[in-house]
Design a protein around this nucleic acid. Structure first.
Lengths: 343, 343
DNA sequence: CTGAAAGCGCTTACAG
DNA sequence: CTGAAAGCGCTTACAG
């Protein structure tokens, strides 16, 4: 279909080997020949056939991007941006991204993304938490893999993480600066590493500001539910208020949960931020349009996707080096849920 | 890499042609031979090499999924679900989806998605409005294409659309049933076909309910801005209230715009739904967590992606038949923004 | 520095 | 119903 390397070679008056050399930039070609060939390539807008290249190079030119379907429906605003960042960077490597979701529980190997068993990807990006068995499976298969916002303790793998501890600490500092001390924490369970880190960041910062007693007092905390959700936020705040009726602020593990808190506060006719302050984490698409707008921590989602792809390509091309974790900095965004007219 | 068709053939004691025939299901193979070969295929979990298949069949096995970057950042909750539907259905055809965003203005051909000029896709799904020049470009290239939630009047193409008129009419009926008559409309511009249809659906329904005077009165309408957004909703409602201080309800062209209306109503201390009712359209991820939750029209996003992929594969495999438009039904969802305790 | 040739793993007429 | 052979469009040692 269309023009092939043979056509180019014939027109340029060289062999196909030479054309191939010019395109790949490998090996030696005289400047004169190179230019002559390049002119023809440009003139005919020739692009080498991907499948032929793949067949001979035994590479697919594809990267698999895996995300749990729960995450994508609960936090799609978050992970979509990461995907976009990966796709953006993939262009620089002339790679394509193949998306696949996985369920909460998966059969190995029946339920794993089809591109893995079909060997249609050169590497894998896994975003958010997925069944550990899946990670171990691809690890065993020795498919180059980068985790984003996820960790599996047994396996030593490349990962791109955001600085959850620092983000939580920034929120605490912000609240303490407002002369607040009774600060609670609402979130999912320890299952997800990010949740754990955010909670620990909160605790560390509280101790740092002389509020260790609160940081240790579980009446101030709600860390029970497996998945975060608005409902989780509602139930969490309810529970805390039962124990600590005069709690001054609640830090939520993410913005989705925080919206639930806002709803609950509304339902009991408390005023945010005057009577209670709410903060989230992630800064997703709806964070600025809640009522009131949410103070949160911005996570550079696109950049995380970019970094993950760079790291992955490095791994694919350069093979065995030491596995690394890249920590992406985050930034507090103050809005109306903690400061009147904050946004 | 790995096991090839030759290996299978040797082990099964047949030729590679026979193995190929068994896999593809084309041509005649005796039942005995077929079984003998299948057993070996299963035993070794053999999967034919995609690149080899592609090379010989001159197909890429990929579908390009194009969406404007504005849409993806403004309405990602909407289009992500459509993408997911397409991916879901793509599995049934053993196709992969390649995602690409395009800018508001694009250079032809430099700015068009790379997989098009590289001939790495067998067909295209275009979701939402993109530059018309892009649609015309791929049309000229004769790449099978299905539009989702978009139309280009000059070209005759396959499309999957939601029933926007009917959705708008359902909202109007719902409001009229609540004994409301002063119903305004806030939205983007006529640029996007869906916006036009939703507005026209509103007008038609108003006329139907004997409210033609309002349907024709532009004081009740705000259709100025190119892109929809919360800010557009805020400005729109402000404008309408200047002219019609006692407007009873506002239908927004989508949920994003509706959140802006809710914010504006809040800022002027009006009560929703008691003093003014707000309705949206789309039912995206944040629609149920606004304050109050949004009455809206659910659009079956996943199903639209599924339908688009089916239509596209039909086009790719069966070539020239008449182009068709598939209209997907929608459904009103009543929540607290129009009915107290509606949700 | 450049060309001839083998080969990547399939599919598909074409014989038989 | 089945096999031998050509060919898809590249890349890569290997000669020269």
């Amino acid at each position: 279909m269309g023009i092939t390397i043979k056509d180019i070679a014939k027109i340029a008056g060289v062999s196909t080997s030479t054309v191939s050399l010019v395109i790949s930039g490998k090996g030696y070609v005289s400047e004169t020949t190179r230019e002559k060939v390049q002119v023809v390539i440009d003139e005919y807008n020739y692009k080498p056939s991907r499948s032929a290249q793949q067949l001979v190079s035994q590479c697919s030119g594809n990267i698999g991007f895996i995300i749990s379907d729960i995450h994508l429906s609960r936090s799609e605003a978050f992970y979509t941006r990461i995907l976009l960042g990966a796709e953006l960077e993939a262009r620089n490597y002339n790679m394509y991204i193949l998306l696949s979701t996985v369920g909460d529980k998966i059969d190995i190997p029946a339920g794993i993304p089809r591109f893995i068993n079909s060997q249609d990807v050169d590497g894998l990006i896994i975003a958010g938490s997925v069944p550990v068995a899946l990670v171990e499976y691809v690890h065993k298969l020795r498919i180059p893999t980068v985790l984003i916002d996820f960790k599996v303790s047994q396996t030593n793998m490349d990962a791109v993480l955001m600085d959850n501890r620092d983000g939580a600490q920034q929120i605490v500092k912000h609240l303490v600066d407002l002369n607040i001390s009774k600060i609670g924490f609402v979130g999912g369970s320890y299952y997800h590493p990010s949740i754990k880190e955010r909670f620990e960041g909160y605790q560390t910062a509280m101790v740092l500001h002389g509020l260790g007693a609160i940081a240790q007092n579980s009446d101030y905390h709600y860390l029970i539910e497996y998945e975060t959700s608005p409902e989780c936020g509602q139930r969490g705040l309810l529970k805390i208020l039962e124990k600590i009726p005069d709690v001054e602020a609640v830090i939520c593990v993410n913005d989705t949960t925080a919206t639930g808190c806002l709803q609950y506060v509304e339902s009991i006719n408390k005023k945010v931020p005057e009577e209670i302050k709410i903060a989230g984490f992630d800064n997703v698409n709806f964070s600025a349009i809640t009522h009131p707008p949410l103070t949160t921590v911005n996570v550079p989602k696109v950049q995380m996707g970019v970094e993950a792809l760079k790291l992955l390509m490095d791994r694919i091309n350069n093979g065995q080096q030491v596995h690394q974790t890249r920590l992406i900095p985050v930034e507090l965004i103050v809005r109306g849920s903690t400061v009147k007219n904050g946004s």
